[in-house]
Design a protein around this nucleic acid. Structure first.
Length: 359
DNA sequence: AATTCGTGGCT
DNA sequence: TAGCCAAGAAT
């Protein structure tokens, strides 16, 4: 191997400096990043990191811009009603993030006088901020020594050291290895360099090893099959749940809507009333209807895939007189009001499906 | 420790 | 197409 013949030119250990040098040339310009090596405002790091949890850069970008324009600082977000935050978050998924984002903004105002704490420990105590996000804010916003180990870090580290233990059990070991990589300074840049490396070079499939600053130090690369890392445990199968949604449409076009319970699946979000969603369709769906009406089933069910189950939702529609009052816990919403509602994607499918006359 | 919790894009 | 994947946290 050339590495053995010339260890100075082909280091066998990953050097933090090499990655930082690569980052200085190739770092991505993203809406939530400061320019020219400046520190980013903690609120912007916080907002982006919460949104980016399990969510792609492309998906987050418009939501980040909208939130920042509407709530430019943590005090503004803390002062907003939760319903408005949920409505602005609608479509982004994992809605506990929006509830916790709001709770966290209020906690920062109430407990910390409107300024984010700077240590991982204090950040970790805030709602919605876990080990990753605490380390991300500490390193990127405050230049603290911290390792925000996300999926990118895990993949890079698993490949560098050819870790054969499977995720998620291997997570503590991967974190320990990650800590050995930290540079003596530039912690924020290093954190983002690891993410950029994972996102653009050390990708899940077809990694671009020829372009990697650590290619000579990578055990997975040496094995000839870097894409086999990280090893992952098999995932559980997704069951299908079924239900019936009741689309009551008033003569003026208003649709009958309610809010879901404040926690759990789609917690606090708006929905068309429906039966419970279970693996067995309820024998008599109509007993769950929000009001007496002549229900007509649309031809095809709405299908939607959640994180841990698939849903087949039949839509039953009924026309109601304009004067029909809303039952307790329900409200009528005209189409012009849909955008202000916190409809998750599955409910937008239901409304669109019916609106296009799918019977 | 294992589950719960969304969505859209890509292969 | 059916599965895989994306800057995880809470319980």
């Amino acid at each position: 191997m050339q590495a053995a013949a010339n260890p100075a030119a082909f280091p066998t250990e990953p050097s933090p400096a090499a990655l930082l040098a690569w980052y200085d040339r190739h770092r991505r310009r993203l809406p939530w990043r400061a320019e020219g090596g400046a520190r980013q405002e903690p609120y912007r790091v916080f907002l982006s990191e919460i949104m980016l949890q399990q969510t792609t850069v492309v998906t987050v970008a418009p939501y980040y811009a909208a939130f920042l324009a509407r709530w430019p600082d943590v005090a503004a977000l803390a002062a907003a009603p939760l319903e408005e935050v949920l409505s602005a978050w609608a479509g982004l998924g994992y809605y506990a993030r929006a509830r916790n984002l709001h709770a966290c903004a209020r906690a920062v105002v109430e407990r910390h006088g409107g300024r984010f704490p700077e240590t991982e420990e204090a950040l970790l105590a805030l709602p919605g901020i876990g080990p990753y996000t605490a380390a991300a804010i500490a390193s990127i916003a405050f230049e603290r020594r911290a390792a925000p180990v996300d999926g990118n870090w895990e993949r890079v580290v698993a490949r560098l050291f050819a870790v054969k233990a499977a995720l998620p059990r291997a997570r503590p070991a991967l974190r320990a290895l990650a800590l050995t990589l930290l540079p003596p300074a530039r912690f924020g840049d290093f954190a983002q360099a690891m993410m950029d490396l994972g996102a653009t070079i050390c990708t899940p499939r077809k990694p671009a090893c020829a372009l990697c600053p650590w290619t000579e130090a990578c055990a997975a690369r040496a094995s000839g099959a870097p894409e086999r890392y990280p090893v992952k445990a098999a995932k559980a199968a997704k069951p299908t749940r079924r239900g019936v949604a009741f689309l009551a449409v008033r003569a003026d076009g208003a649709v009958l809507v309610r809010s879901r319970p404040p926690r759990g699946l789609l917690g606090g979000m708006s929905e068309v009333p429906s039966t419970p969603w279970e693996e067995e369709q309820p024998a008599k769906p109509v007993v769950h209807a929000p009001l007496r009406a002549s229900w007509t089933a649309l031809n095809a069910p709405v299908t939607h895939v959640f994180s841990h189950f698939a849903l087949e939702l039949e839509v039953w529609r009924a026309a109601l007189p304009a004067a029909t009052p809303a039952p307790d816990g329900h409200r009528w919403v005209v189409p012009d009001g849909f955008d202000a509602e916190a409809f998750p994607s599955v409910m937008r499918k239901v409304l669109r499906h019916a609106g296009s006359g799918g019977e």
